[in-house]
Write a protein that binds this DNA or RNA. Structure first.
Lengths: 268, 268
DNA sequence: TAGCGGTTGCGCGCTTTGCGCACAAGTCGC
DNA sequence: GCGACTTGTGCGCAAAGCGCGCAACCGCTA
């Protein structure tokens, strides 16, 4: 192991990390997995893998049918504890519903985690597009209005470091895959106060996002409205949606400041 | 420990179970938790708790602000893996959307896990009611149309054992809290082919559910439409919603039979 | 039927991991 | 300043978890 330095720390519980690795192996494949397949995916020995699988099954997170394992619905408990205790659903969702209703478009709230943004609340309206993207989904930050809005208002040094680490890939012909251009884009977003994306993540999908700040003015999340270019031209997004977005931003920030501990959930 | 018999099995990885226990401790409380608080909630020693917390933080599942820990959004990965690999979203969700749209009411798909049903897909329509209930939420099986529909079509002996173990509590004045009456209700559901609930879980909420079968005719889930008594009288639910429900049931069962491995995700 | 590459389950001895005690070092309130 | 409370951490020790390696069980092919 190359991160021996960490794995051998006195406080590090290797078995927990390994067990979670086994659990996450199931997110990589659709099919039911055998012990050896999981062992290969995780890089653990077959014997160790088996112990973890048996334990996870005993705990109810996995089910098995003749030597093949699948995730059970109990696995939802682990992830959804985040949502159920965060108050996001109760607090943010209704506000998002209102925004979504007034604009007749999909709206989402997301936070930045590493190179990706994670959706934490979402109200789909137009069902045709982006059905796959739900709460908990991750998308590359650099190709999303949400990611750009967060990055633009992150502290300069931290943002630079993050952008530096990005591996910009052209997901569509319109993706901004050049670091210099991307930095320029981020500057523009900061100047405007909002971010627009047109076909950068997926052809035809356009969105406009604004940052959400904590009471200390540091950015913690982003809010966007997402639509299809065939319905709203990208250049019209600002005129049509910026005002409702800014109103909703204010609503959410007010709601967050009333529950200070919730801010922790986004950025600690 | 009273289940020493299991914990001392050779295959049982105690550290993984303990670590997950620590992670789940955060679903019990809204606030940020200190090491000692988690230790108390889990029953582990403070030293052990600390090792797990540090490990989970290192892995990104927890964040911490001066000695207090909260779940991070990465925790969603664990639960999201279940949804993203199950194909439920791609397969069931669109069908549910259609049902929900034709009925103008909330529809949900849930599975039985122990004494509770877990929502695995859901399309809320009327936003006022039951906003808290989302994917991954658990509700007592005996007070829900979904639970009754599943139980009524579970194999007799298994269903009896489950009902036996239920601790029937009167959640509302209308909850069926008597075991004999509940068994009678289940027989009625089996005879009718659908289950109706009126104010049994929450006053004012009414719903009608049908079971979803695997290709071998065993029940694996239930589908319901949920509304408010002030909008639709409980006795009208059958006439209004049973036909669309049965049509959707057929659609879902057809879709499931086309992807046999998906059935495993519900019941193994 | 016998042989063979591919699985899988599992016993066993060894080592290391993770255990909890117990001490040190802060933090608050009187 | 001195208790009563937290929290971080070093240490020695038991056992928990490790992976090797064997045996059993497939489904093929001959």
């Amino acid at each position: 192991m190359d991160d021996e330095a960490i794995e051998s720390e006195a406080w590090y519980v290797n078995s927990l990390a390994r067990g979670l690795k086994v659990l996450l192996a199931f997110s990589q494949r659709q099919e039911a997995l055998s012990t050896s397949e999981v062992a290969e995916l995780t890089g653990l020995s077959r014997a160790a893998t088996r112990r973890f699988l048996m334990t996870l099954r005993y705990l109810g997170y996995l089910r098995s049918v003749d030597n093949r394992f699948v995730l059970s619905a109990k696995a939802l408990d682990l992830g959804y504890a985040y949502l159920s205790t965060s108050g996001i659903v109760e607090l943010v969702q209704p506000i998002l519903e209102t925004l979504s209703a007034t604009c007749s478009e999909t709206s989402s709230l997301a936070i930045l985690e590493g190179e990706e943004v994670i959706y934490v609340a979402r109200t789909p309206t137009r069902r045709m597009i982006a059905l796959r993207v739900g709460i908990g989904s991750r998308i590359p930050a650099y190709a999303s209005s949400l990611g750009k809005a967060i990055l633009a208002f992150t502290e300069q040094a931290e943002a630079d470091a993050l952008i530096e680490s990005f591996e910009l890939k052209a997901l569509t012909p319109k993706t901004i895959a050049d670091p210099a251009l991307f930095r320029e884009e981020i500057r523009t977003v900061r100047a405007n106060g909002y971010a627009v994306t047109a076909s950068e993540l997926e052809v035809g999908v356009a969105s406009i996002a604004v940052p959400i700040m904590a009471s200390d003015r540091s950015v913690i999340a982003a809010l966007n409205i997402s639509t299809h270019e065939s319905i709203h031209a990208p250049q019209d997004l600002r005129d049509k949606f910026l005002e409702p977005l800014l109103n909703t931003k204010a609503d959410i920030e007010a709601a967050l400041s009333a529950v200070p501990h919730l801010t922790l959930k986004f950025r600690g």
